[in-house]
């Protein structure tokens, strides 16, 4: 097993492994169609004080009577008190969350999972490749880079969405660019008002000539998209152990008891969700695995 991954950050700040802590929605930010960002504050100040997370980690969000869902944290790890989750309506729980407003109470337990290895990537060029909602778990990395810009070389964000209106956080791109970060955006389907790129995210690699010796790739998006991101990165000789993916599986417990998020030898809730390609290569293209 590769030990260079960031270790899971166990002992969730919220205490009991399966019991949520009530948190109040302090702000709701519509992002795109069916996507909203919720800012949460723990009702128990002691829990809020103790709460810390690393980029790429997730929380279990709970609504009584409805259920629980694993949602990535999309905010700045340096400001754990302004805990944000960008939620796309995809099922039961997210549907119910989408009906909530500021003042509503959500159960939170976490943080769970490992994180993007931002420390291991110090001194490297970073290529951050996101598709759709996949930008949400990568945004904490971007905030980290903004705060520690000198630690990294050339930083490129390749970001894609289905439609221009589905692009996440467009109001922040200028800020990112002002920190010497190249932000390239593409959409799968455009209308006549769109003056930007059209095409899937992996083709944005065509213009890149990364230095394999000092490049780290972070990617999150639909799994089939990540397949082709990996192929493009490998074609440019980025080492397998420097291509990191955030994978998604159903999670019921988030503490490796329920068995659902197994991906071969790994539990994505504990050993993931961020895995380097060298660890998952044998299983990456096995159908129905």
């Amino acid at each position: 097993m590769n030990s260079t991954l960031a270790k899971g950050h166990w002992s969730p700040a919220t205490g009991h492994p399966m019991v949520p802590q009530p948190a109040v929605i302090t702000h709701v930010q519509p992002e795109a169609h069916g996507v909203m960002t919720y800012t949460l504050g723990f009702r128990d100040p002691a829990v809020g004080e103790a709460y810390r997370f690393h980029p790429g980690q997730f929380n279990m969000l709970y609504l009584p009577g409805i259920g629980e869902a694993a949602i990535s944290i999309s905010s700045d790890p340096a400001e754990p008190a302004a805990l944000r989750h960008t939620v796309r309506i995809a099922g039961n729980v997210t549907q119910a969350i989408s009906r909530m407003e500021a003042g509503g109470v959500i159960g939170v337990r976490g943080p769970y999972g490992n994180s993007w290895p931002v420390d291991r990537a110090v001194g490297n060029d970073l290529i951050i490749v996101a598709g759709g909602i996949g930008l949400a778990p990568l945004r904490p990395v971007i905030y980290h880079v903004l705060r520690h810009r000198a630690d990294y070389g050339k930083v490129t964000i390749l970001n894609g969405a289905r439609l221009p209106a589905d692009l996440l956080y467009p109001q922040e791109y200028d800020d990112w660019r002002s920190h010497d970060i190249e932000v390239v955006v593409t959409v799968d389907r455009a209308d006549e008002t769109w003056k930007g790129r059209v095409g899937v995210v992996p083709i944005l690699f065509y213009a890149l000539r990364p230095d394999p010796k000092r490049t780290t790739v972070f990617t999150c998006g639909p799994e089939i998209m990540m397949h082709f991101v990996v192929y493009e990165a490998l074609a440019r000789r980025v080492p397998k152990d420097r291509i990191y993916l955030s994978l998604e599986r159903n999670m019921k417990c988030a503490v490796a008891f329920c068995g659902r998020c197994q991906y071969g030898p790994t539990f994505l809730c504990k050993d993931g969700p961020v895995l380097s390609y060298d660890r998952i290569e044998p299983f990456f293209t096995v159908e129905e695995f």
């Binding site: 009577g65 409805i66 629980e68 008891f257 329920c258 068995g259 659902r260």
Partner: peptide
């Protein structure tokens, strides 16, 4: 050891509970 965690509640959601049950791959 695999399990499911299910949500139960009364009719109007006044009380609810999370119940872990044996599940299978």
């Amino acid at each position: 050891f695999c399990s499911d965690v299910q949500e139960t509640s009364d009719l109007v959601g006044e009380t609810a509970a999370r119940v872990r049950v044996w599940d299978s791959c």
